[in-house]
Design a protein around this nucleic acid. Structure first.
Lengths: 233, 233
DNA sequence: CAAACCAATCTGGTTAACCAGTTTTTGATT
DNA sequence: AATCAAAAACTGGTTAACCAGATTGGTTTG
C-alpha cells in the first residue's frame, strides 16, 4: 500500500486544479477502464503546468487505485470504471485535513476492533512484543517521565497482533498526529499515566488469555478517560 | 493528508533497506525530535543510493508523520520522539500488502460506524447526494447491468455524510481494491444486486429519519450476504 | 564587546536532459 | 496486397544541473 502525496499548501491547490481538469478530460473523451491517458508531457502542456505537477497528481491517483502507470508505456485508467473514478475524484477533491476529533473517533473505532482480533489471533511472539512495550511504558511512568510514545507503541503492538494489515496501516497513519495532539493539549498528565499502567496490564492479560470480550471491555474503559479529555479540548 | 508512496516491487526493497539504515543512523547518532537529518545528498552518498531513492523514503516517512522537511533548510525529526519513531519505523518495515479478507474486515468496521455517524450528522445536501447515487445504482441494476461502482459510490456518499474526514479518507483508500476484488471474484451477481436495492433504500431511509440504530442494523444485514460471499472465496 | 551586516555555503525543491523499453510507423521484400 | 524486419517516435522513469531561500561564520561597525 502506498502512502504518498505532497502536503505543501500551495501545491495542493495546483494539484486539485489538475485533478479537476483531468476528470473533465476523462469524462469529455469518454475514457474507459484500461484506456491510456495522454502522456505526461502532453498533459503538462495542455494544463499549462510542469510535468512534475502532473506526475505528483498521477502518483496520488495511483495511490488511491484510480490510475496505473506502466513504465515506457503509459498511464492507464484502473479497472474500477468511469463512474466510480469520476465519483472518487470528486471525493478526493473534497477531502480535507483531518481534525483531532475525527482522529480520536477513528482511533477508538479501530482499537476496539484490533484488540478483539488480537486476543483471537495473537501469537507468542506478539505477546512478547506487547510485553516489552508495556514494560517500557511502566518504567517511564514510574520514573515520573512522559510516556505518550511508549503508550502508543503498546497500542501499535496490539494492531500488529490483530493480523489485519489494513487496520495496522491505518493505525500507523493516525498515530503521529495523535501523539502531537496529545502532547500539545497535555491529554496525558502524570497521574493519568499512572492509572494507565493497570489498564494496560488488564488489556494485555485479556489478550494473553484470548478473551476477546474482556479485551474489548478493558480497552473501552481505557479510552473512557481519554475520550472525556479529548472532548474537553 | 498525503498518500503517496511508490509501489514498484523492486524499489520497495531498496526503500526498506534505506529506512532500516536511516533508523540505525538515527539511533546511533541519538537524534531527537526537532533535530536535523543529514542532507539528502549526504544520505544518498552514505547509503550508496540515488538521491531520488532517499527523497522517496523521506516523503514516505513524512506521510507517516515521522519526518518533516522544510524547503531550503533541511529534513527534521517530527515531534513524536525517538522511541515512537524507531518503533514506527520497525512497524512500517514489517507492513505487508493488504489481503482481501483484511480489506473486507476493515470496510465492514468502518461502514457500520460511518452509517451511524451519517444518520446523526447528515445534511440535506448529503441526503441529495446519496439519493442520486442510489438512483444511479437502481437504474443500472434494473437494466441488468453490473453496478458495483454505483454501489460503492453510494457507500462513499455515506462516508462523506459521516463528517469524519479520517474515516472518509480510509474508505477512499480501500474502495478501489474492494471494487477490483469484487469484480475479480464476481462477488455481486445480478440477483444479489437486485436484493441490494431494497437494502440500500432501507439504509437511506434510516439515515434520512436520523435513526442511527436502525441505520446500523440495516447496514449489518446488507453486509451479511457480502460477508458470506467473501469468506467463500 | 555586542550587534549588524554580508557573503559563502548548504538546503530541499524544481527543471531539463537523458535513458531504456515499448509502440507505432515505415518500407522493402515476397 | 501481405509480411515482417527495422527504425523512428513516444512512453514513464531516472539522473544531473540549476534555483531560490535559509543558514552560518566571519567581519565590520557602533
Amino acid at each position: 500500500m502506498r502512502v504518498d502525496i505532497l502536503t505543501k499548501s500551495e501545491n495542493l491547490e495546483v494539484q486539485k486544479e489538475i485533478i479537476s481538469k483531468l476528470r473533465d478530460l476523462i469524462n469529455y473523451k469518454n475514457l474507459e477502464p484500461g484506456d491510456k491517458l495522454p502522456s505526461e508531457r502532453m498533459l503538462s502542456e495542455k494544463f499549462e503546468v510542469s510535468r512534475s505537477n502532473v506526475r505528483e497528481v498521477i502518483q496520488k491517483l495511483e495511490f488511491f487505485g484510480i490510475l496505473k502507470s506502466r513504465p515506457q508505456s503509459g498511464t492507464f485508467i484502473a479497472d474500477i470504471g468511469q463512474i466510480a473514478m469520476s465519483g472518487m475524484m470528486d471525493d478526493i477533491l473534497r477531502l480535507e485535513d483531518p481534525d483531532f476529533k475525527s482522529l480520536v473517533e477513528t482511533r477508538i473505532l479501530l482499537e476496539l476492533k484490533t484488540v478483539r482480533l488480537a486476543s483471537l489471533r495473537r501469537t507468542e511472539e506478539d505477546l512478547e512484543k506487547m510485553r516489552q512495550a508495556l514494560d517500557a511504558y511502566k518504567e517511564k511512568v514510574l520514573n515520573g517521565q512522559d510516556a505518550v510514545q511508549e503508550d502508543l507503541l503498546f497500542h501499535l503492538a496490539i494492531a500488529q497482533a490483530s493480523k489485519n494489515t489494513t487496520m495496522n496501516t491505518f493505525m500507523l497513519i493516525i498515530t503521529p498526529e495523535i501523539i502531537t495532539n496529545f502532547e500539545k493539549y497535555h491529554v496525558c498528565d502524570a497521574n493519568l499515566s499512572f492509572k494507565g499502567i493497570q489498564e494496560h496490564e488488564d488489556i494485555y492479560n485479556a489478550i494473553k488469555d484470548q478473551d476477546p470480550k474482556k479485551a474489548k471491555e478493558k480497552m473501552k474503559t481505557h479510552f473512557k478517560i481519554l475520550y472525556q479529555y479529548c472532548y474537553n479540548v
